[in-house]
Every structure is written in C-alpha cells, then in structure tokens.
Design a protein around this nucleic acid. Sequence first.
DNA 1: TATATTTGTTCAATCGATTGAACAAAAATA
DNA 2: TATTTTTGTTCAATCGATTGAACAAATATA
Lengths: 340, 340
Amino acid sequence: MENKKKSTIKDIAAVLGLTPSAVSKALNDHPRISEKTKIAVKEAAIQLDYQPNYLSSALRKGKSNLVGVIIPRVNSHFFSSVVENIEKVLNLNGYNIIMTQSNELYAKECQEIDTLLKIQVDGIIASMANETTNLEYYQKIKSKTELVLFDRGEEELNVDYVGIDDYKSSHLVVDHLVSQNCNRIAHIAGFQHIRIYKERIRGYKDALEKWNLESKENWIIESNLRLEDGRRIMQQLLGSSERPDAVYVAGDIAALGALQVLLENNIKVPEEIALIGFSDEPFTSLTQPSISTVNQHSDQIGKLTAEAFLERMKNPKKKTINRIILEPELIIRQSSDKKK
Amino acid sequence: MENKKKSTIKDIAAVLGLTPSAVSKALNDHPRISEKTKIAVKEAAIQLDYQPNYLSSALRKGKSNLVGVIIPRVNSHFFSSVVENIEKVLNLNGYNIIMTQSNELYAKECQEIDTLLKIQVDGIIASMANETTNLEYYQKIKSKTELVLFDRGEEELNVDYVGIDDYKSSHLVVDHLVSQNCNRIAHIAGFQHIRIYKERIRGYKDALEKWNLESKENWIIESNLRLEDGRRIMQQLLGSSERPDAVYVAGDIAALGALQVLLENNIKVPEEIALIGFSDEPFTSLTQPSISTVNQHSDQIGKLTAEAFLERMKNPKKKTINRIILEPELIIRQSSDKKK
DNA sequence: TATATTTGTTCAATCGATTGAACAAAAATA
DNA sequence: TATTTTTGTTCAATCGATTGAACAAATATA
C-alpha cells in the first residue's frame, strides 16, 4: 500500500523508449535534443511525478547547491530578518539554505561548521558567536569552501563582509543625546574582542571627546548583552556615586532589561535618564516608553550578503575582498526624546 | 595558493598501495580487513584530512541522514527548545537536521516542504503553521518519506505525534482561577481549525460547566495570538458591558499584549483581573507582574519526538501510530495569585 | 601430502544523473 | 550523385563510496 518509490530518469526513458542520457539532456534543455522529445520527456516527468535525485546530480556536478548559514541565535529579529533575505535572494539563484544557530557558543559553532562541511555545502555565510575568539574553524571553512561574513566578522579572516558602520552609529547616538542636553552618557557595551562592539565603543569615546564630555572608564561596562546583563549593569550604574543622565546600550534586549530596572526604580525616562538601544528589534516600539534604537537595515544586509556570496561563487579565486559597509540610521523614540 | 581540494579514499589508497574498496572497508570496520591495515588506513585518513563524501555515500546507501524540521517560527522559546532537543537526540544517532520555518504561512510551508523533499531528507518532523488547513502537502510528505508531527498536528493525517494534553491544560487553568475566586473567566483563544486550540477551548468550556459557571460565547475570542491580537482583544473585553475577572490566553505573547493593555488602563492584576498565558515563554517570568502560564515541557516534547522518529525509521511500515501525550503543568505566578 | 577453512584483498557492479565523444540518419551543399 | 553539415540519439565514462563475489595466500584439518 505504501508507495514510497521515487521515479528516476530511467523510468522516464523506459516509458518513452529512450536512453537515460537522452532524458537527462531533454530535461536540461540540451540544444541537440529535438523540441518534440523535450516536450514528451517533460510531460512524462510530470506524469511520473519525477523529482531529480539531488544527491546524484550534486555528486556528478561537484556542487550541492546548498549554502550553510550560521547565526548566533534565531530569536532575534535582526538575524532572522537577515536570514530571510539571504534565503530570498539565494533561492532565486537555485540555492537552498541550511540555517543553523550557534547559540553564541563557540563549541556549538564548531560543531555546526563540521556538520555543514560534512554535508558538502557549496559555501557558508556566517555571523560569529559572541564567544568566538579562536578563528581556527573559520580558517577551516576557508580551506574547504567559500565563506562570507556579515555583522559579526573579523578582518583578519580576510573574507567578503557586509555590515554597518558601527563607529558612526555611536556618533549618531551620542550626537542625539547631546542635543537632548545629556552630558553624562554611560555605555552598556558588548565585549571588545568582537569587532562591532569594539567599534561602537571607539565611536562612543571619540564622540564624547568631540563634544568635550567626560569619558569615565567605569561608565563603559562590557557584557554579553542579555536581558539580565542589562538589568544587572543598570542596577550597578544606579548605585554608583555619580549617576549618568543617559545610557547607550549596544543591544536592544539589554536595553529592555535596563528599562525595566529604571521603571522599577521610578526613574523618569527620558527626563532623568535617557535610553538608547541598538538593532531596532520590534519590541522596542512596543515598550512603555518606546525605546530609541539604531536601525541596522537587516533586509539590506541580507540581500547584499547573498549577492556578495553569489559574486564569490562566480569567481572563487578573485583576490580582492568585498567589504560592504552600510549607513546606520538612528530611530528616535520616547526613551530619548525630551520634547521641549 | 588556495588549496580547496578534498581528499578521497582513492588518495588514501594510493598512499598505502591499496585499492579504494579496501580503504572503504577499513574505515567502516569490515571484519575481513586486518587490524594492521585498519590502523594504517585510519592514520592516513587523518594525515590527509580525509572527510567522507557525504553525497556519494548517501547516494549509494539511499540514505541522506538528513532530517528536515519545519516549525512555525523560531523566535519562540517553545519551538526553539523543542528543535534543540530533537537535534540533540538525532545527532547522537548519526542524523543531521535542517531546520526551516514556515512563519505561520501556508505558502512558505509548502515551499519548505518541496525544498526538503528535493534534497532527499530521510524524513520530516513538523509542527504545522497556523494558516494550514489544506493537508495536501503533508500527504505529499507521507507519500515520499517519513513524517512525525509535534504540538500542531492533525489526527486525520494519521502519523506519529507528540504533544501535551491541551484539554486537561484548560482544566488546570480554570480550576486554579476558580480557586482564586474568579467566576467570570474569558478565553482569548487560537483558531478552532487547529486541533490544539480547539482542545483548549473544549477544555475551557467543560471546566466552566464543571464549576457551574456561565459560559458566554462572546468571552471566547479566536485570533492568531500575536501580541497585537492580545492587545486588541483585551481592549475589546474591557469595553464590553460585563467585564471578566479573569482572562485565560492560549498563548504567552498574546497574554503579554493583554497585560500591557491592563496596565495601561490601571487595572490591578490579579486583583481586578487575573491573567494566565500558555507556553511558559521565558519573558513571562520577567514581566511586572509575572505571568502565570502552562508549561508544555518543550524539552521532553523534543526528546520524545526525536525518539518517535527514530522508531519510525527503524520500522517504516509499522501500521500502528504512536501518539504520545504529555501532562501539562500549571505555573502559578503573580498575575493570577491573589495571596490571601 | 591433499583438502578444507580462514583471512586479506581486489574486482566489478551499483546508486542516479551528467556529459563529451561517437554514430547514424537526415538535410544541405557542391 | 558525392560530400559535407546538421540534427537527434546512444555509448561509455564519471562523480566517490559501498558491497557481494571472486580470488589468492595463509593456516588448519584430515
């Protein structure tokens, strides 16, 4: 009763009295095959519910048409939006993607890389886990297949990259806070060993200097930027001798944690302390007050990353590296907008 | 300079002066191969950084060792936790998973199914999209490969299934609310065409009846259970002539939306209106007040689903269907706990 | 010593699709 | 009519690993 057999070109060939190779060529629109046979073959293929055996053609062609995508976590609007857009572009070009998440863990990331290499993907698009400092596994990818990075990338890997201008983002944030008459601006930061967070810190410091504002070392606190990190650090800032009048958080989730603590302590946001997050996660517009944040253009990043990947596939040994840096956009919401 | 060639058993054979078949057998611990050769071969394999070509062995064996997992969305703790646990169990058994999301859309789901079938997965584990009512594509999966469902499943598909007792969950919720002296209990529900939501509604009605409570039809409102749905429906309930004193929401995100509206209207939770969600998403313990909810044992569901799948793979033509139903657990938090 | 058994390896076919070369038939050109 | 060109198809090798059968050598048994 169960009829799980799949039909092959052989079956089609048998039905039409042709050879498998003629069928294959007909399906692939080979110029030497007559229109008549092509039509007959394609009809028979539909009749028999023929699905090409991906494994065999991939083996023969030396190309799986699968692309591995590694992201730190998927329950983030930024990453899932990027992946969605990568998928959209790659699907149009005949690729299918396999999405995996590292959960920000180095060990998991290594395991995922091994899996992807094992199933012979044609290339890997990745954004590195927070934990990752050892680049060995990324070197391994490079030695076996193509690699394109987005958002979280390391320059020394010397691969194609798409991201935003993190340094400039901090300037946008600080400039805006200054315009709101803030002058004691703290920064709940990500870890410096990750390039994007280092850049945000550098931008933050330079922007403060630009405005002749004090830059206190204990106003820059690095963390994993989880919700609980935001809460903990905000509490710490509130307890310090000199309270900031604005906090710039390098991630929205941590910013939410910080906001929770502020509200629990009956601190008026933005009047007493203004708050700005990073990434434009959807919930930032839903909180009370809504949270100002930086839009990273996840859709654009996804699209451009996929295009960079396709470019690389077309030209695997091109020496020049493609680095695409997008302009950040500050989204001003209630948490930093002191209307006069 | 770039050295992206991968070594094959041929290379190993050449190095050791053996034939490829001897190498293959040595690597697979064939009994007829001598210990000495096995050791030599395995050593050479490491030396040459040999990775078996997954495509060729999959083709030969007629088995890809890939399992497709389709979930409605990944930015939900429930689903990502289930997938994580499925992956854990399947990895131990030599399978790799390909995770895809339908985004609750029927069209996307169909597309993902086609992709998975195309790349010849050995089976598919899925939880159906909210939108899905046409089971044609799931029938297609059944006709081509193995299928196991969890959480969102349809009985008429007649496949292995793992989920919780949704009917009983509603009883737990209502019983608890009654114990808190609530007697006007509304239900923000999911759509009836999805079995789990239908069961929750049925349990809710029966539990009300059990306690001789009025069951008003306009206190059961179906939706997609997104945040905005929760907000909209809560507003609607507040505006109605007879306000409920408790609201049972069939999803945590919608419950969060409902809570936001309650707080915005300065309604005391749980004193004036008690609130209970569903799924035990992590944020439910972080809100102020924290939200009571139903724990679906996502880790267990993942583990058991994977095991059901493995069982099915071992015995593809077994006629009896495995239906595993777990006990729900009510987690009482501030939003429904009126301490005496 | 002759024969049977065990052991270690090679041979050759296979999975399904692809592809350049070969070939025959039809059409075009000289 | 003879020769070249075009067209439509088949042949055979290939991708890399697997596997049953075959074979030779070593060992055991009669």
